[in-house]
Computed example of a mutant assay.
Amino acid sequence: MATNVLTLVGSLRSGSTNKQLAEAAVANAPEGVDVNVYEGLENLPFYNEDIDVEGQVPAAAAELRAAAGAADALLLVSPEYNGTMPAVLKNAIDWLSRPYGAGATSNKPAAVIGTAFGQFGGVWAQDEARKALEIAGAKLVEDAKLSIPNSVVRFAETHAKDDAEVAGQVAGVLKSIQVAAEAN
């Protein structure tokens, strides 16, 4: 049985290098790992406890929760916006963390990777996403990290999935996630 990794991309832009990185994960997943990139984060309303009522949860939030609940692990792919993760990714974590203690992130193996234009590859954003995931109850896969700097230049002519170094690094991250999910 394959390990199902639900992947959330924090950039909504069609030409996003982080979307490319998620596509690289799909294309280079090791045997026994299925990577599913979630579509629809742009449809999530901002988290509001007033609308998070049983039987009345917005459809977009219910769909995200169902997809995450069915997954064996989570992979977040985050750009860095003003030194932190994008609001769309934080909003998704907030929806997935509820109900408190029993949300779709509870006890679920999770990792964060990403790429950014700057020289550090978005590590601040990734650290913030890891912090939010951990507080939301996820089990962080500590050795599953990847920060790719200078993304605009690096992926200007080569898609991330076709970059041999990136392909190998992404496969390594997914293997670590698979091991954690199987041990969970």
Rank of each mutant, 00 (worst) to 15 (best):
N43Y: 05
E49N: 15
N43L: 10
L76V: 00
K90G: 00
V33I: 03
D34R: 03
T115A: 02
K90W: 05
V53G: 03
E49A: 12
E63D: 03
L64I: 15
V166D: 02
P30E: 00
A92I: 03
Y81K: 08
N28W: 10
L74G: 11
P149T: 04
I148Y: 05
A61T: 09
D94Y: 03
A129Q: 11
N18K: 10
E142F: 13
V152D: 00
A24C: 06
T105V: 15
A132V: 11
E157N: 15
A60R: 04
Y47I: 06
K175R: 15
T7E: 00
A138E: 08
I148P: 01
E165S: 13
V112T: 09
L21H: 04
V88K: 01
E39K: 07
A60I: 02
A70Y: 15
F46Q: 13
M1D: 11
D50I: 10
N28Q: 03
A73S: 06
K19A: 12
A60M: 11
D52G: 01
K90P: 05
E134Q: 14
P149L: 06
A71I: 12
S106A: 15
L41S: 05
M1A: 12
K131L: 15
I113V: 10
E157I: 15
I177N: 01
E49G: 14
G101M: 15
A2I: 11
V153H: 07
R65N: 14
L133G: 01
A111G: 02
V179R: 14
A181T: 03
A61M: 06
A129T: 05
S14F: 09
N36Y: 08
R98E: 07
A25P: 07
A181F: 06
S97D: 06
P99F: 12
S78C: 06
G32I: 00
A132G: 13
D34P: 02
V9I: 07
A136Y: 14
N18W: 07
R154I: 07
L96C: 10
A167R: 04
A138H: 04
K145F: 08
D162F: 15
G101E: 13
A180Q: 10
A59E: 11
G15C: 08
P79F: 02
R13Q: 15
L12F: 07
E157C: 14
T7G: 00
E134Y: 08
F120A: 12
G40F: 15
K161R: 08
G168T: 14
